[in-house]
Design a protein around this nucleic acid. Sequence first.
DNA 1: AGTGCCGGGTG
DNA 2: CACCCGGCACT
Length: 378
Amino acid sequence: MTFAAFQQEELKSDLNQKLSDQHFFLLAMKEEDSKTADTKKPSRVHEHEKESTRSICLLEQKRKVVSSNIDVPPARKSLEELDMDKVTAAMVLTSLSTSPLVRSPPVRPNESLNGSWKEGGFVPSSTSSSGYWSWSAPSDQSNPSTPSPPLSADSFKPFRLPSQTDDGIDEAETSSLLFDEPIPRKRKNSMKVMFKCLWKNCGKVLSTAVGIQKHIRTIHLGRAGESDYSDGEEDFYYTEIRLNTDSVADGLSSLSPVSPSLASPPPFPSQDVSKSDLSCAKTDVKGMTPLSRSAPTNLYLVHSDHAYQISPTHTRPAGSGEQKQQIQTVLSSPPRLSVGLRKPRGEGKKCRKVYGMENRDMWCTACRWKKACQRFID
DNA sequence: AGTGCCGGGTG
DNA sequence: CACCCGGCACT
């Protein structure tokens, strides 16, 4: 079979498939309409029906045109052959759409992020019956040059949603990826990824995963000699944190590395643990930015949800509720470190409470200026 | 809705 | 600086 003939076959079978699908859809629509005809305006139903019939006619015409353009009449093909053609067509379409050679340059403006990987990995073909979508391993039929879905850090960064306690967010995110909704979330690209040691009483922050692993291996696991050997245990003792390099100056917190370390001091003084991605997992040693848990292709995701997540040095009076709150803040808004560092609200009396709004002149100046009360400091 | 207060604006 | 206030977190 020549390539041209093959292409024609594909086209035809694909069209057949689409036509029959649409046909069924239209029939279903008609049924639906007739079911609800008594409750709806009859004229509208009628219109609908007319429309449907006309569409079917048009589709039939199209089918005829295509058939006449192609030498092989549809009747000559057995059902199995047709089915095979459908499958082949789907496969070819799949590989066509994923092949970098054939792929047309991006047209949609927002394709650069979700579009590319969606296109690359997930082709919702009606004939790929399994319904299981995965690009973990290319099937034997697909083009070997099929690019693996964007494992590159950049393409995943925007989707990285650290959520340890709330998987629903991840799912929502995922579904919004599956459907073509644009994701309005903006993220500053001034984010810097750091790795924080979660070992008790150690707040070591390093800029590379390798560095932090080495730190944990040598300092905490006592494996100084076997620097190359790693059974992955270090993975459990550090987490990734994202810093907004814009507001790093604000980020001076009381948390400072406790243990002296062999490596150079962290580029930034330290970080409040609440700003770390607690659920965030990490990837392998190659310095890749961690992928989202919701991403279908997690490579080496290791959850770091263990006892050391909450830094022992973090002794703010507010309990876990505040922690959660802060994490959510980090999740959902452009990072504003000051929010995380906000002083716990004073519990004592306040001028406003004591004197009331009517005696505002009796308030302390701070209260008058809507600042932290200085009269009833707790 | 009320309260506390941070961050930022104004003179 | 003093002073004020928008707006947010928290209750």
